[in-house]
C-alpha cells in the first residue's frame, strides 16, 4: 500500500490532487482544526490524506463558549493549550498521566483528563473549564458548597474535583454518597479532603433542588 499507484484511490478514479483538495475542504467544514495552510500529502508514504504538523497548525478550540484559533503543534495536550496560550490556569496539571485527575475538564459536558487528550483531537466539541462554571459573580452551587464545607486545603486538586462533582449533578441531581465517591474515584487529594468533598456535593445537590 505504500505505492500510490496501487492504492484504492486510483481505482475509484480520484487523483491524488483532487482527493487532497476535497480532503482539505472537508477538514475545514469539520472545523476540526483548519488544516488549510498546513495540509499536505504524507510524503514518503504517498498516502493521499491531509497531514497537519509537526510544526504549529491552526487549532480552533471552543472553551467556555468562546471560540479561539491557536497555532499549536499536534503534540500539545488540551491541558497545555488551556494553561498556556489560553491563560486558563484554573486547570491544574498534577501527574500529567491521567492518574490524578487534577486536570479534569468537560468535553461536551463529560469529564476527561485534559492532560491525556491532544488539543488537535478536540475538534468541534465544547470544552468547559473551572473558569466557565460560575455565572458571572455567582458561584456554581458545588463551588459554594466546597467553601462552606471546607472541602479544600492546598487547593491544587480542587478545580478538578469541582468539575467532577458538578458533572455528576448534571446527570444525577440527587446522588447518593456512594455515587459521589464513584464520581471522584479518579481524583487524588493528598490533603485528604474526600469526606468534605462528598458532604459538599450532597449539600450542593440539595441547594439546587431547593
Amino acid at each position: 500500500m505504500l505505492n500510490p499507484d496501487d492504492s484504492g484511490s486510483r481505482e475509484r478514479g480520484i487523483s491524488r490532487r483532487t482527493f487532497l483538495r476535497s480532503a482539505v475542504g472537508t477538514t475545514m467544514v469539520d472545523a476540526a482544526s483548519g488544516f488549510l495552510d498546513d495540509a499536505k500529502a504524507a510524503e514518503g508514504s504517498g498516502v493521499p490524506v491531509a497531514v497537519a504538523g509537526p510544526e504549529p497548525v491552526p487549532v480552533t478550540l471552543k472553551v467556555n463558549g468562546v471560540e479561539r484559533t491557536l497555532r499549536l503543534e499536534p503534540r500539545v495536550t488540551l491541558a497545555e493549550a488551556l494553561r498556556g496560550p489560553l491563560g486558563l490556569t484554573g486547570t491544574k496539571i498534577g501527574c500529567n498521566r491521567g492518574a490524578c485527575s487534577a486536570c479534569t475538564v468537560w468535553i461536551d459536558g463529560v469529564t476527561v483528563c485534559s492532560c491525556m487528550i491532544l488539543a488537535i483531537d478536540i475538534g468541534a466539541r465544547s470544552v468547559t473549564t473551572i473558569e466557565g462554571l460560575a455565572q458571572g459573580e455567582t458561584l456554581h452551587p458545588v463551588q459554594a458548597a466546597f467553601i462552606e464545607h471546607d472541602a479544600l486545603q492546598c487547593g491544587y486538586c480542587t478545580p478538578g474535583l469541582v468539575m467532577s462533582c458538578a458533572a455528576l449533578l448534571r446527570n444525577r441531581p440527587d446522588p447518593a454518597a456512594e455515587e459521589v465517591r464513584a464520581a471522584i474515584s479518579g481524583h487524588y487529594c493528598r490533603c485528604g479532603t474526600y469526606p468534605h468533598v462528598v458532604a459538599a456535593t450532597l449539600t450542593a445537590a440539595k441547594a439546587r433542588q431547593a
Binding site: A32, V49, R75, L118
Partner: peptide
C-alpha cells in the same frame, strides 16, 4: 514527547493506508 504530524482518517481504508506500524 517527540514532535509528530497528525492525520484525521475519515474512513477505515484511509486509516489503514496511512498507518505503517
Amino acid at each position: 514527547m517527540n514532535r509528530f504530524a497528525w492525520v484525521n482518517a475519515r474512513t477505515i481504508e484511509e486509516a489503514s493506508a496511512a498507518v505503517s506500524a
